[in-house]
């Protein structure tokens, strides 16, 4: 009886820590007061409305969207062939390739950001925007390779041989047979990459410049200057966006199979 009590208690604490911050942010976002505070002073939607009027939020949101969409697409363009090669051929340096590809997950983001700033942006005069794009692509690549590999491993390779024996070239076989059968894996990788890129802080922190800031970095900046609940409102909006994407993905793809 006591052990059951303890397990319920543990569960309650876990939920408190997982969902608590979210509840606080949503409450703060709906505050009628002038400063970021909990419990909120009155209820209003004015901070939610204000989010859409802040020019820097709009700019950084556009940049973050651009990075998340095109960084993920670039990572998929690079990652799908890597995943395919790794699953179908015994590559001479297969293990090395796998390690290099997953390095961005293992190396702390702070170090990646600093390295890119120090050795790409400063000496080579690469624009911060391009460096951000490269960094996000590299960060998403491991996820793209992994998730796509998982669906490739579930796809028997003899169906490709069957297509070849029916007259299809290897390349056409990839597009006609392999791609249609791993599309849910690719979509899952896209969603995972999108969310990863959108939430990325440490690397983006180093790669910021005048007018070039991703949304999370811009939120930090904003908070240092203006301590009003609009940041909480923005955070709540983003949380709802993420939740609905993942909900839809789970509903239609069985997203949790891949992550």
């Amino acid at each position: 009886m006591t052990s059951r009590l303890y397990s319920y208690l543990t569960l309650a604490v876990v939920f408190l820590f997982l969902i608590g911050p979210f509840v606080i942010i949503v409450a703060a976002a709906l505050s009628g007061g002038e400063t970021l505070a909990f419990p909120p002073q009155g209820l209003s939607l004015k901070w939610i409305a204000k989010v859409f009027t802040v020019e820097s939020f709009r700019q950084s949101f556009a940049l973050s969207m651009f990075l998340a969409i095109f960084g993920t697409l670039a990572a998929l363009v690079l990652g799908v062939p890597v995943a395919y090669a790794a699953s179908r051929y015994r590559l001479p340096f297969g293990e090395v390739i796998r390690t290099v590809v997953s390095a961005p997950i293992i190396v702390p983001g702070i170090i990646v950001g600093l390295a890119l700033l120090r050795y790409l942006v400063i000496p080579l005069n690469v624009s911060v925007g391009l460096a951000l794009f490269i960094a996000h692509t590299a960060l998403i690549l491991p996820y793209a390779v992994r998730v796509v590999s998982a669906s490739l491993d579930n796809l028997r390779s003899d169906i490709e041989e069957a297509a070849v024996l029916l007259g299809s070239s290897r390349l056409a076989t990839f597009f006609r047979i392999v791609l249609p059968n791993i599309q849910s894996g690719i979509l899952a990788a896209f969603i995972l990459g999108f969310v990863t890129s959108f939430n990325q802080v440490p690397v983006s922190l180093f790669l910021s410049g005048p007018g070039v800031r991703t949304l999370p970095i811009d939120m930090i900046w904003y908070m240092e200057i203006t301590y009003d609940p609009s940041v909480a409102a923005l955070a709540a909006l983003l949380a709802f966006l993420s939740i609905s994407i993942v909900f839809l993905a789970e509903r239609f793809l069985g997203f949790s199979r891949y992550v």
């Binding site: 028997r156 003899d158 041989e161 069957a162 297509a163 059968n181």
Partner: peptide
């Protein structure tokens, strides 16, 4: 093929 290898999609 022994496994038939039909195209599932």
């Amino acid at each position: 093929f022994q496994s038939y290898a039909l195209f599932p999609h």
